[in-house]
Amino acid sequence: MVTRTPTEGLGQPVGDSPGGVVERERPGAGDRFARFLERSWRPFVLLALLFAGWWAITAAELVEPYEVASPGVTLETILAKPDYFLDHAWTTTYETLLGFVIATVIGVFAAVVMVYSSTIEKSLYPLLLFAQVIPKIAVAPLFVVWLGFGLGPKVIVAVLMAFFPVVISMVTGLKSIDPEMLELSATMGAKPWQTFWKIRFPASLPHLFSGLKVAATMAVTGAVVGEFVGSEEGLGFIIQQANGNFDTPTLFAGLVIISLMGVLLFLIVEWLEALVLPWHASRRSDNVTTTL
């Protein structure tokens, strides 16, 4: 008589299953939280060390206060005017999210068209590359001249910054499908739109989310760049104004808030990836570049 014992961490083996198949249990909330802590403590420690170094440099007066504001002074500046920073941060956040969503929609659509039409791909790809290499700070003033100082120029720059990673990653994902899968789909009589929704699109999602995580941070940069060249509100406006007034604490406060905004948007996209792609190997591997 063979006695079967539970496999630690993998659930109970199925007694009558062929080949000793082991039924894996879904990780509970506690396991997921423990895994999150295991993966996150190193970045938090590194961040703490960077802040400690920042504080040590300013505390030892290795640099002048007007050159680098200390962490304490930066925090005091934010807490002294919370409504001021919150209002401007919301403006930049709105511009960033709007630009990111528009870039995602247009980028995905353009990628699909390029994959299904080689003529359009050969015509459009060089233009996309040309548009990407142009410094956005150089063309942003043109949008201000054309559209004024309103919302439009900031959103357009954010779209231009975020568009390229989305379209390139989506094209790569749509083309990475195994040709045998497409042949099998055609053999079984699937229509082109069925092949797209059932095979091509799901297979492209890991690549798409990789591009979206890059685009999320680029959209923040684009919104701020748009505010640099013409704006009366937003974090970019705060930085420009603080730079002109030699107000280093306010300048550093704006930079810290922008950095936190980019990290938060990146984490949101990564969280959505974990919800949409729990089955993908990148979500199950121990050696994965992720914070979730």
Rank of each mutant, 00 (worst) to 15 (best):
V256Q: 03
R35K: 11
E76K: 11
V73N: 11
G99L: 06
M188V: 12
L124N: 05
V68E: 02
V63C: 07
F51I: 15
L127D: 14
A216N: 10
A216H: 09
T74K: 02
V171N: 01
F33N: 10
S123L: 13
L260P: 01
T187V: 08
W279Y: 15
A216K: 02
V113A: 15
P141C: 04
V225I: 15
I239P: 00
P278S: 08
V45N: 00
V113E: 13
F33H: 12
K122Y: 10
F266T: 11
P206G: 10
P82D: 09
A111I: 14
V263H: 03
V14C: 06
E8Y: 15
V171W: 01
A138C: 09
A274D: 13
A60Y: 07
G53P: 02
A29F: 12
G173Y: 00
L97Y: 09
P13V: 05
D247P: 00
S40K: 04
G222W: 00
A29N: 08
V157Y: 03
E233S: 13
V139K: 11
A89W: 03
P202W: 06
T58F: 04
R283V: 08
V133R: 04
I102T: 02
P179Y: 05
E23M: 06
E76C: 03
W197K: 09
P153C: 07
F252H: 02
L260Y: 05
L264E: 03
T7M: 14
R32V: 14
V288T: 15
L184W: 02
E95S: 06
P202H: 05
L49F: 08
V139E: 02
G20M: 05
L174W: 01
G262T: 09
A140R: 10
G11P: 06
F33W: 13
T92P: 07
L75H: 03
F109S: 13
R35V: 10
A59S: 11
T93H: 01
L235P: 08
W55E: 11
T250C: 00
K213H: 06
F163R: 10
A216F: 01
A203V: 07
E38K: 09
R4P: 05
A80D: 09
A186Q: 12
S117C: 04
Q194E: 15
G20I: 03
G189F: 14
S259L: 12
E61L: 05
E25Y: 06
L184A: 15
V115Q: 11
A253P: 01
G262K: 10
E64A: 15
P18R: 07
F143A: 09
V22L: 15
T290L: 06
G53V: 00
F36L: 14
I168N: 03
L205N: 12
E76D: 13
V263R: 02
A103R: 05
E67F: 13
V269L: 11
P27T: 12
K175Q: 11
H88Q: 06
E227H: 04
E233V: 05
P202Y: 04
K191C: 08
L147A: 14
V220A: 04
F164D: 09
L251K: 06
L129N: 13
D83V: 07
